[in-house]
Computed example of a mutant assay.
Amino acid sequence: MEPVNLLIDQLHGIARGAITLVPSLTVAIIVIFLAWLVNKLAAAALARTLRRTRLRKSLQELFTLLTSIAIWVIGIMIAAVILFPGLTPASILAGLGIGSVAIGFAFKDVFENFLAGIIILFRREMRIGDHVECEGVEGVVARIAIRESHIRQTDGQLVIVPNSILFKNPVTVRTDQEHRRVTVICGVAYDVDVDEARTVITDAVRGCDTVISDSKPIQIFAQEFASSSINFEVTWWTGSKPVEVRASRDQVVAAVKRALDDAGIEIPFPYRTLTFKEPLPLQRAPENKEQPADDD
């Protein structure tokens, strides 16, 4: 019977300990409830305050998240000290420090993306709606979150890029400026007057409505002696969005081709001239004459 009595005594001890913890547990639950209530009120007040600022939505969400984490950490620490009087804020912080190191090693990539996302959110150069290109991914920035950014490609596909990639690699923001310079190569035949061809090309480019010619220069430079033509570098400015660049290039190429045709200036096909050191004898091929058939 001794083992049974020992078990009963242990159960009685556990019950008495639980009863003694009821007041502390009740206060701890009240503290957790108050932390939840304070978190809700702080989030609402912070949202109203941030709404008056010009901060991007993702950055507002970051501030709300950090405030919520701080309130919950303080509330849980107070509840733990009340429930377990032997704990102190210093011991809790020491335990959090050791645990954070272990968690940091286990979730290195997650924290790297998190910190990179915070830095990217404070950047002013890359905004939602910008057309960017990074590591072969090109499209419109649809969302900038804490750990990843959403880029919508021109074909409609959504690419979720970890923020660490955008932070550690060069990012080309194609719509950072309102206008972008476009260049095409146009070749004319060698027997064409270069100045005349330049004038015809310039007038054709200036006549396109997608070309910005009042504040940006149109530049036409003879570039090189190619194998079958003299190539001109045709440069102009247009809108910075990719669709605007494609539309302007289409219009300029069509206008230059039409103007050169109207002026009688040839855009030559590639051709090759063969030169032989010695004269080549020409030999006429024998003619095969059909013999008339004998009449039997």
Rank of each mutant, 00 (worst) to 15 (best):
T154C: 05
F114Y: 11
I151M: 00
E112R: 15
D130A: 04
V171F: 04
R152G: 00
R152P: 01
F111L: 08
V101S: 03
V171W: 01
F107R: 13
E196H: 15
V192M: 08
D155H: 06
T175E: 01
H131D: 07
V192A: 11
G156D: 06
P162Y: 02
V194H: 10
R143V: 05
I120F: 00
V161N: 09
F107N: 13
I120C: 01
V101T: 07
F107K: 13
F114R: 08
V140T: 13
E178Q: 15
V141N: 06
R124E: 12
A102C: 12
H150K: 09
F167L: 09
I128L: 02
G136F: 02
A145C: 01
R143G: 00
V101W: 03
G129V: 05
V192G: 06
R181A: 13
N113P: 02
S100W: 13
Q153N: 09
T154A: 10
F105L: 14
D109V: 11
N163F: 03
Q153R: 15
L115S: 12
E133T: 14
I160W: 09
V182Y: 02
A116K: 03
D191G: 05
E178H: 15
V192N: 06
D109T: 13
G117Q: 08
H131W: 11
D193N: 05
L166E: 00
T175R: 01
S164Q: 14
G139M: 02
I160G: 08
G129Q: 04
I160N: 09
K168H: 14
D191E: 14
L115A: 13
K168I: 08
M126Q: 13
F122E: 14
Q177N: 13
G104E: 03
A145K: 08
Y190D: 04
N169S: 07
N169Y: 07
Q157W: 07
G139Q: 03
A116W: 04
N113S: 11
S149C: 04
D130M: 00
V141W: 03
I165F: 04
V171R: 04
L158F: 02
I120D: 02
I160P: 00
E135W: 08
G156C: 02
I120N: 00
A116M: 03
V140R: 11
E196W: 12
H150V: 11
